[in-house]
Design a protein around this nucleic acid. Structure first.
Ligand code: FES
Ligand code: FES
Lengths: 133, 133
DNA sequence: TCTAATGATACCATTATTGTATCATTTGTA
DNA sequence: TACAAATGATACAATAATGGTATCATTAGA
């Protein structure tokens, strides 16, 4: 099971890269060169991060990106939500609900429990945590 | 996030249907008629269930399927494993690992914890549980 | 003014999932 | 015995999600 999409994956890597170069302007070219991520695709990732307020961008020659907030504030769950939508498991695991009334569903408590744990664990992870490796 | 594939979904529905008709032979046509599942596709689902030992099949005229075990023994996690493979979150959430050495990864404990909860919760759910709705 | 960068967007490719069709084989029944 | 109704096996097709490329306009430093 794949919890992260490429966009999320690349976002973390790119942000991590920039977190290690605070103060510098980092271009998509830099990241591409050093991290070997497919440039045009990852460029879109960065643009989204900029729109979402995670990055500050400077256009033009010698332009590039910089973190818009400290690594402690960037949390994995936030990035996942941006690129993969809400990680809710919804009311029912099935495509069309199985039980007459969701309120009586014997699976509901399990579903909510799983959901809570996932969100909780992922919320606990910040970019800063990943820097200390 | 979608935890169940169509095959798993259909498997549960079909098995549930049969669990309510113990002793009878249920054909794919019956299920199709009553549950409105796409027949050729769901037929494959049934064939897999047969191969995996969940169903006994009888070929020929008036043939069909029957549960090969009591509903208490059929667990959601088992069906998921068959149709969707292991639900392991693997060692690293990322496509290529982020950390020098997985052993030092700060995410590992979270990953394992999430995995354990998922498997645990899903293991707790049997077909019998879903019948009482 | 040239060049190297981002912004925006349209398009393409790949893969996974979902679904259909077909034919061989089996078996109850008229 | 022939027919019909079922599964077994398998190949094929459609769809959707994901991943990736290309292009052009705009911006700004040298
Ligand atoms: S409503 Fe979905 S399993 Fe009960
Ligand atoms: S090895 Fe994957 S995040 Fe650490």
């Amino acid at each position: 099971m794949n919890l992260l999409s490429r966009h999320t994956d690349y976002a973390v890597r790119a942000l991590l890269y920039m977190a290690n170069r605070v103060g510098e302007r980092v271009s998509s070219m830099d990241i591409h060169r050093d991290l070997k991520l497919p440039r045009p695709f990852m460029r879109k990732t960065l643009q989204v991060l900029q729109k979402e307020g995670y990055l500050v961008s400077v256009k033009g020659h010698k332009g590039g990106f910089m973190l818009a907030m400290p690594p402690q504030k960037i949390r994995l769950i936030g990035l996942m939500r941006i690129f993969q939508g809400d990680i809710s498991l919804s009311d029912c695991l099935f495509r069309k609900k199985l039980c007459r009334c969701v309120a009586v569903c014997p699976l509901r408590r399990e579903i909510k429990s799983m959901e809570a744990v996932l969100v909780d664990r992922l919320s606990g992870v910040s970019l800063a945590d990943l820097m200390v490796r």
